[in-house]
Write a protein that binds this DNA or RNA. Structure first.
Length: 260
DNA sequence: TCTGCTTTTCCTGGTT
DNA sequence: GAACCAGGAAAAGCAG
């Protein structure tokens, strides 16, 4: 349906533009094209004013975060290492590649991206078009995953990059070598046992994620342990009798190599 | 407003 | 003795 969308579709008359020219520079102000768009919903993210093909890696990340927040997409389904790319690379991905990278979420991320390319940011205002599609996604995702996952779909609807749980943040860091920088290390990959190597760096990253300048490793580790009381109980983390060493439990998902 | 979940904060005590 | 780490308890923040 949307496969025919091309750069020239978005840029009528195939105008030649500067590589990093903003959407506003190309087409006028956002208000001219998107008069009812609520900027509050996307904060100050500049990705909203740039054509997707000119997004930086950071813009792509912001867009992913926005989609997760806005439509309550399950960030656990998304392999973020696959999206460590710029906008041009993102736009060149096929629907199959989106699905490979983010499962059921990928189908909708692809759907959203193509609509942004066609309709611009005004796509987000068309609740008649977007909300049912996303609702349908949520229903299907819950049905497909079932069991524990099904529960999570309803009880942890706030899952997102920004509001992701601590254990998910740790898991994603372990799965992203480019971001990890030796902060965390696998002790036993198959068993899900990992070790905190650079405790302060980990706390700093978590603090940035939570926009909390006062975060320290003491607090983060307390959160992991306190959380542990909850996580251990629910099977997300298991107790390891060694300092700075933790283990994913049977109900923690997304960390196994063969289940990414 | 209430409740539950998750995280943060402060404090104390044990280990290295 | 200092630094680091772990656990208890209470409270905050958030969403349903």
């Amino acid at each position: 349906m949307l496969d025919s969308v091309t750069h020239s579709t978005f840029l009528p008359n195939t105008m030649i533009c500067e590589p990093l020219m903003s959407w506003t520079e190309l087409f006028g102000t956002i208000e001219d094209y998107y008069p009812t768009f609520d900027h509050q919903t996307v904060g100050d993210s500049c990705w909203t004013s740039i054509h997707p093909e000119y997004w930086s890696k950071h813009n792509v990340c912001e867009w992913l975060q926005f989609c997760c927040d806005q439509y309550k997409l399950d960030a656990n389904c998304i392999s973020f290492s696959h999206f460590n790319i710029n906008g041009l690379q993102l736009c060149s991905m096929t629907q199959e590649e989106f699905t490979d990278a983010a499962g059921i979420c990928g189908e909708y991320l692809y759907f959203i991206l193509q609509n942004i390319r066609i309709h611009g940011i005004s796509f987000f205002n068309d609740t008649e078009e977007t909300k049912p599609a996303i609702k349908d996604y949520n229903d299907k995702a819950c049905l497909r995953t079932g069991g524990t996952k099904n529960q999570e779909c309803h009880s942890h609807g706030r899952t997102s990059l920004q509001s992701s749980h601590l254990w998910e943040f740790v898991r994603d860091l372990l799965l992203s070598p480019e971001e990890n920088c030796g902060i965390l290390d696998w002790e036993d990959r198959e068993q899900g046992i990992f070790r905190v190597v650079k405790s302060e760096a980990l706390a700093k990253m978590w603090g940035q994620r939570k926009r909390n300048d006062r975060m320290t490793y003491e607090k983060l580790s307390r959160a992991l342990r306190c959380v542990s009381r909850y996580y251990y109980k629910t099977g997300i983390l298991e107790r390891i009798d060694r300092r700075l060493v933790y283990k994913f439990g049977k109900n923690a998902h997304g960390w196994q190599e063969n289940k990414l």
